[in-house]
Write a protein that binds this DNA or RNA. Sequence first.
RNA 1: GGCGGCGUAGCCAAGCGGUUAAGGCGAGGGACUGCAAAUCCCUUAUUCCCCGGUUCGAAUCCGGGCGCCGCCUCCA
Length: 461
Amino acid sequence: MRLYSTLSKKLEELSPSDGTVRMYVCGPTVYDLIHIGNARPFIVFDALRRVLEAQGLRVIHVQNVTDVDDKIIRRAQEEGRDPAELALHYTQEYFADLERLGVRPPTYSPPATAFIPKMVEFIQGLLKKGHAYVVDGDVYFSVRTYPGYGELSGRTVEEQLAGARVEVDERKRDPLDFALWKGAKPGEPHWPSPWGPGRPGWHTECVVMSLYLLGETLDIHAGGNDLVFPHHENERAQAESLTGKTFVKIWLHNGMLTVRGEKMAKSLGNFYYARDVVRLFGTEAVRYFYLSRHWRKPLDFSFEALEEAKAAVGRVYNFLAEAGRVPGEAQPQDPGFAAYLADAEQRFWAELEDDFNTPGALAVLQDVIGEAYKRGDPGALRMAGDKVRCLARPLGLFQGEGSAAELGKLSEELLDLIVDLRAQLRQERNFALADKIREKLASLGVELRDGPEGTRWILRS
RNA sequence: GGCGGCGUAGCCAAGCGGUUAAGGCGAGGGACUGCAAAUCCCUUAUUCCCCGGUUCGAAUCCGGGCGCCGCCUCCA
C-alpha cells in the first residue's frame, strides 16, 4: 500500500520487512467525552488497520490515553474532583464510545501514568546526551541540538521564531525549547524524579510509549493534522536525538472535521459528542460518512450530510436484504458476471492500495450493487451480495444482519400469517385495513413489499 | 506575517497529463403497484474558481489572481 507521508510529502510504500506494521495513533486526552471530530482518526486508522490485516499483515496498533495533563488538572479543579478519578472516568467513557463507533480496541491503549518511570529514564537519557537541561525542577529539550527540527512541519527554526506568538519563558535557553518534565505546582498530581516531584510533558508521554511498545522505528505514526506542530515535531526531535535512528517511516495526518468550514473544536463550542451523533444516525452512517471522504481532506459536518450517509447505507442494506433472500446455490445466468465481480474486487483493492482511497473503494461497492440490480437476476444478486459483504468487512461496514436471521422461527411464522391475512383483505379490496396493517408493521420495522409473486417482508433497522 | 492545504453538477465526492469527467444523495419523467415501498430505464457537469502559459493533448503540470480553511498556543 502506498500512503502519503507528511514528512516526505510523497506517497511512500508501506513495506514492513517482517510482515508486522507498527502503528501509533495519538489517542484522546481524557478530560471530557470525545466529540465527533475527535473520532475521525480513530475510525479512519482503525479501518486502515483492518484493511492491512485483511491483506495478511500483522498490525500492532498502539493508541495512547493521555491521563495526566494541564486540561485534566484544570477540569478536575473546576469540578472539585480528583484528577486521577476524573481521568479514569473519561477513559472508560472513551472505550465505550469507541465501541459505539464500531472501532476495534487498539492492540494496546497505554495510559501515560503507567509509564512515568520510563519517561523519567528517557529524559535522563536526553540529559546525558546533552539534548536537555534542567531549570529549577523543570527539564527542557534543547531544540537547537537536533538539526532536523522543523522538517516534519516544513518550517525552519528561523521561520518559527519570526511567527512566534507565545510569550517567551525567559528561563528557557531558546524560545523554541519545550518542557520534557514539569515540576509540580501545589495541589497538582506529581511523581518522583531526580529533578523533584512533577509530571512529564505531553510530547514526552507519546514518544516514550511509542518507543517502548513499538521499538525505535515505527512504520506509521498517525493523528490529526493539528498535531503536526508542535506535538509530532517535538516527538520526532526527542526520539531521534536519543536513538539516532529514524523514528517514523510514514507520518499520516488526517484532515479536520469542520462545521460550516471551521474546525470542530471544544474551544470553539461548535461540537457534538460522538455518542450523540451515533445515537441520532447510527454507527454505520457515521463510519460511512467518514470513509466517503478521503482521509487527508477536510470534511464538513452537518446533519444533512449524516442523513445522506444514512440513506446511502440504507440502500446497501436494502440490496443485502434482497440478495439474502436468494437461495445460496443460485448461480448467475450471465457467465460473465463472475468476471465482472472479480474485476470489481481488483478495483476495490486498487483504490485502497492507492493512499487508502476509501471513497473510491466505496464507489466500487455501489457500482457492484447497481450492476447486480440491473441484471435482474437472482443468482447475480446473490453473488454480488456476498461479494459486497466480504469486501466491506475490512471497512467495518455492512456486516449487520438486516434480514430475517435475527428473528426466531415463531416470529417468522407469525409474520407470514399476517401477510396471508392481509393478502385476503386485498383480494376483497379492503385496502383501508390492508394499508393499516402495512403501516403498523412499518412502524415496527417490518416493511412489506407487494409484488407480482406475492408479498414479501423485510426487516428495516 | 510565515508555513501548509482546499476550491469538480442542486448537494456530497473520486479522478492528479489522453477515460463517454467514477460513485452517492437529491430532483424530474417513465415502467411496476389498488395506492405505496423496493427496483429498473431515462434526464440532471461539452466541463472541473478565474486569467495566462507549457503540451499534439490539462480538471490534472507551471505562473499570477480570487475565495475558504488549518498550523504557528492546548487541540484528533
